[in-house]
Design a protein around this nucleic acid. Structure first.
Lengths: 145, 145
DNA sequence: CCAAACTGGTTTCATTTGTAACCATCTAAA
DNA sequence: TTTAGATGGTTACAAATGAAACCAGTTTGG
């Protein structure tokens, strides 16, 4: 019987890596503003697109609708976003950042970019190109499953 | 002001990828045996090394000690592992799989390997080499922080 | 029309998790 | 020794999560 070396097992390595990176990155939204990851993603989605429905948010950022629902509720409580009922379909609400939400987003934006830039910088040209192409390949592989 | 495209943001892509792969892989231990991820990792660690302390398990599989503690407790309840007190240091316990635990491990082993193999196969030679080198590069970059 | 099926979104409940406090033991320094 | 601090491991509590039930509104097929 052969064994499985956990440290070399791709699913494990991938998860551990994502966890470490994500944890490191979370300082930007958690330590500074007390946001959770779903809240950060919601903010990022709205900052990027201006206006979205909860459903669209979930699709864009790969979050279950309950996560979206809770994140939106919390950001609304902070008055970082507002809901506007859809004219034609009364189940739907259009979400948009308030001035305060946009301000927070704009403050975090350069930090997020710097984080990514520095991470990639530490890899060197080779590792950088490898991770970018590798991630894309995996994404593609999973997409057509 | 420029914006951040979430779909292109490395921390997000990495996390989403790891999540998808991990979720897919979890079928092997969750659906079949009702294990959690920490429990699976514990099983894998002990299967790989034969005997380990809780601390070593935590280090090997990047789990917080509470996760290890709970996973070990659950596997012990199933009678998949036993604890043997250390002779010299009575705080330490040496953990090892029972016959039943080993059987479960041996049953899952080929499934785990097949999973990884198929995942890599779907990538093609290029993507495969890219992800492997990219992941290694990132690991190295994070290691020396 | 009208019931059945569907959809956007929320809530409830059980489970998982992270943090911190904790217990017992061990180590080192006075 | 004795005591202060480290260390292996567990527990308690609050917060985050996922699954499923749910509500209101919308579509579809008869």
């Amino acid at each position: 019987m052969d064994i499985l070396e956990l440290e070399s097992f791709l699913p494990y390595r991938l998860y551990r890596l994502a966890d470490a990176v994500s944890h490191e990155f979370s300082k930007i939204y958690k330590d500074r503003h007390g946001l959770t990851r779903p809240e950060w993603r919601t903010l990022a989605g709205l900052g990027q697109h201006g206006t979205m429905t909860a459903k669209a948010l979930g699709e864009q950022s790969a979050m279950h609708k309950t996560k979206v629902s809770r994140a939106v509720a919390e950001l609304e409580l902070r008055r970082w976003l507002t809901r506007t009922p859809d004219e034609n379909d009364r189940r739907v609400e259009h979400l948009a950042l308030t001035r305060a939400g946009l301000a927070a987003y704009r403050e975090m934006l350069p930090l997020a970019k710097a984080f990514e830039r520095e991470l990639l910088a530490r890899l060197g040209a080779e590792g950088r190109s490898a991770i970018v192409r590798g991630v894309a390949a995996l994404e593609a592989a999973l997409a057509d499953g």
